[in-house]
């Protein structure tokens, strides 16, 4: 199909408008991050030309112990939760691909059991989990967040890894079985290496989800286990909002998940649609 020139033009205009729309907030964060407080509410959009940029905010930000601590917490929580969720999810994904379950719980039932976890709104279990964490003396530790975040992200791992394993030719497993390998060996030596790209993508997706999580983070941490989103939300102090730090902090917190989302997009479609749509 050929497009006529004016059709192309209209398309480019529409796409261009939306591209600006999608990109603008990132640009705006950047502009705010290099402004001094009194320039914030001025109508100046282009650094150097309209105002003198400064790195002051970045310097202050990156030397604030609170921010660095949050960066550390976020990294720990996201990494450990990702490892747990991907590990547990991959086991199930693998089992659902290679085994046929009979009896009251068939493959589909097991699959759906894990999926409902993802449909459950977090706020439903927030209160009981709060008290459970309190009784376990886990409040304000990274462990509370790690437990909750990995629980809520297991389904994502199950979905993507199941899709991944399904795309491998069945004969590989048969061959390994004939060679006398146990299922543990087949899983670690055959299935995992072959699905490495999927594994990496899944990890990136789950890492980003955990990294961005706010509701549990703001509920279960008060000082020691505070993560970056909570710090960002705290840019409001008793003399109002510090817009310049909103700029630095939002860029700081967004950069990793945004990059990950671009790298893992093919798998994202499957993960987000529970495997209903292939990317």
């Amino acid at each position: 199909m050929r497009l006529r020139w004016y059709e192309k033009l209209i398309m480019y205009v529409i796409l261009g408008v939306f591209a600006v729309w999608a990109f603008f907030p990132f640009y705006w964060a950047f502009v705010n991050s290099i402004k001094i407080p009194s320039q914030i509410f001025q109508k100046s959009w282009i650094p150097v030309v309209q105002f003198k940029p400064t790195l002051h905010n970045w310097k202050v930000e990156l030397s604030t112990p609170m921010v660095l601590e949050a960066l550390r917490n976020s990294t720990i929580v996201a990494t450990v939760s990702t490892i747990i969720a991907v590990f547990l999810g991959t086991l199930v994904g693998f089992a659902l691909t290679v085994f046929r379950y009979r009896g009251p719980f068939k493959n589909t039932d097991i699959y759906i059991f894990f999926l409902t976890q993802r449909i459950l709104p977090p706020v439903v279990v927030l209160m009981p989990l709060y008290i459970i964490m309190k009784n376990l003396h886990l409040l304000d530790t990274v462990w509370a967040l790690i437990i909750v975040d990995s629980t809520f992200n297991i389904p994502m791992a199950v979905v993507i890894m199941r899709e991944m394993f399904k795309s491998l030719p069945e004969e590989i497993f048969e061959a390994a079985l004939v060679d006398g390998a146990g299922w543990g060996r087949i899983f670690t030596k055959v299935a995992l290496p072959l699905s490495a790209p999927g594994l990496v993508a899944t990890s990136m997706i789950i890492f980003s989800y955990v990294w961005n999580e706010f509701l549990f983070a703001v509920s279960f941490s008060f000082t020691k286990a505070v993560t970056l989103p909570v710090i960002v939300a705290g840019t409001q102090q008793n003399r109002g909002i510090e817009f310049w730090y909103v700029g630095t902090r939002s860029l700081l917190v967004m950069i990793i998940p945004v990059i990950f989302s671009l790298l893992s997009q093919r798998y994202l479609v499957r993960g987000l649609t529970f495997g209903a749509v292939k990317g």
Binding site: A22, P25, V246, L268
Partner: peptide, 23 residues
């Protein structure tokens, strides 16, 4: 365009919300 349109996908919601106060 595909890349640009996907940028907001995993942008931290809290950060985005704060940015939009200024916007």
């Amino acid at each position: 365009f595909r890349v640009i349109f996907s940028l907001p996908l995993f942008a931290t919601p809290v950060a985005v919300a704060f940015l939009f106060i200024t916007i």
